[in-house]
Nucleic acid binder design. Structure first.
Lengths: 290, 290
DNA sequence: CCAAAAGTGTTAAAAGTACACCCATGC
DNA sequence: GCATGGGTGTACTTTTAACACTTTTGG
């Protein structure tokens, strides 16, 4: 079969020059969440859990010294998923990570160097199985406690529709650092079409548009935790129902009652003949079972 | 602030050479769905609806003469969304299209020419407002009726988990052409981690990995129709409840009863003082209201 | 005994489902 | 009248939610 220029496919491919047009740079970034136990000082009280995000401090321009998601420029011979695993492997010592594609960001001026398109992957990590590697020279890799709170909700009528503006405070913190950020989510419904836009209102030392990505990640987790089994990816293989409940409460930022929560997830877990001991009544351990 | 080489950001950016590494090519493709009425030959019977996908026939290598999604190579100064709109504008005459980012495909050998990464956008079109443009020279742009049927479901135990294999027949057809394809969806649950893989089993003249993309699109629509208002994007501004119900039934491939469907969507629509006339009792028209 | 959390039961409200019936229209 | 679809009511089931109570443990 010949094309309009009378070339066979073989001839066409031999002549094909990918460099005839300029191509954007392309990176893959990882947004990694994990759960950390905050040891209770009262033996009788349960350990509280915290949701954490992995960030690393840039050591070069642009955005030098800001905190960013781990990422890599893609290689010509690796798939997106392979690149996301490479970004992960460079920073952590992982096993059995849950990783899924989150979103691709391609605004023209999102990187000061040149045009960069970035596909992000969302990862959920069971910290009991994985650790951050020893930090590299000149490089800091840190888990940040993650908190998101709604600070305002507005809804106004516009022509042929509704405009909704939500403001969130996103606080990322650890022993030394507190990053205090604000984003705005604008949901426009005009006629039948709903569009959503995420805007950075206050950016506290987070590089690029990575604050947006972090928000989109938590939103994805919040949606998926309701209908999928991603919560289990954040826990060790054996867990108590209370621990699982804490994960749900942490992510959805709402409380459940024990009895109702038990019913909700009862058909996805299986009790085993082991108990978690502590300063109170031992709790039965469960494992995930589809 | 200086970097490790003692450069300011300005100096760094001036020295930055994006061409130091080879970059993959990058395209944005559109997967467009619409609904078409099949005129009933019995005046008393309702028109049946069909779901359609827009494909165009390639006029050059590679995959010459196969049917593909409309797409464009990205320009250095346009965002992904702008590129998706450009791909759309070249083929159709649209107004108020619902468009959302679907997924980014980056397997190394998915394009014979060179490494190409593609971000896909899913569009839902109300055909009453939009039309295909006159086809270009040597180019055919066609709506294909879309049907997907499950042909097998297997579930087997594997080490530490479950493997589920679903096979679907995807038929794309119009007056002249019938494309008969088969794909396989493999859902692996190992330990707590679930992964999904889409494989092409039989590809009937569809270019690149676009059959995979079409499957992912219908899957996205099926999920979103349950909790969002995308169904309305496929309908004109004024519609009857039966028409809306048909859209739901078409996409989810299941039947509802009138009374129950009414309750399900009742709070999202508003009756207006107009009626759809036909060979039977006139039906009240509704409009979408959030 | 008491505090803290594990674990279970009971009930009411809400959402989803099945089905039955009457209405309006044009032939 | 009758076929076809429009429109509504009722009764039943399932799911969700609220909350109350009992059990087990270490101090």
């Amino acid at each position: 079969m010949l094309n309009i220029e009378g070339l066979t496919e073989k001839e066409f491919l031999e002549k094909y020059d990918p460099s005839q047009f300029e191509h954007p740079s392309y990176t893959v970034d990882d947004l990694l969440f994990a759960i950390e136990e905050k040891q209770s000082n009262d033996v009788r009280k349960l350990n509280r859990k915290k949701l954490q995000v992995l960030l690393l401090k840039r050591t070069n321009h642009p955005y030098i010294n800001t905190w960013c998601l781990p990422g890599v420029f893609i290689k010509m011979d690796e798939s997106l998923e392979e690149a996301s695993l490479r970004a992960l492997k460079e920073k952590t010592d992982f096993k059995n990570i849950y990783l899924e594609q989150l979103y691709t960001y391609g605004e023209v001026n999102r990187d000061k160097r040149t045009r960069v398109i970035t596909t992000t992957y969302l990862g959920l990590i069971d910290k009991n199985q994985s650790q951050i590697k020893e930090t590299f020279v000149n490089e800091e890799t840190k888990w940040f406690d993650f908190k998101i709170n709604t600070i305002s909700m507005k809804k106004e009528k516009i022509d042929n529709g509704v405009k909704q503006i939500l403001e969130y405070k996103i606080i990322l913190s650890n022993e030394e650092i507190i990053l205090d950020n604000i984003i705005q989510v604008i949901i426009n419904t005009v006629n039948k079409i709903t569009t959503k836009e995420v805007k950075i209102v206050k950016n506290d030392n987070i590089g690029f548009d990575h604050l947006k990505i972090i928000y989109c990640g938590i939103e994805r987790i919040r949606n998926k935790i309701e209908y999928s089994d991603i919560a289990f990816s954040l826990l060790p293989d054996k867990f108590t129902i209370a621990e699982l409940q804490q994960v749900y409460e942490l992510i959805l930022n709402k409380k459940f009652t024990k009895a109702n929560f038990q019913r909700k997830i009862g058909n996805r877990i299986k009790p085993i003949d082991e108990y978690r001991l502590g300063g109170f009544r031992p709790a039965k351990l469960y494992i995930y079972q589809k």
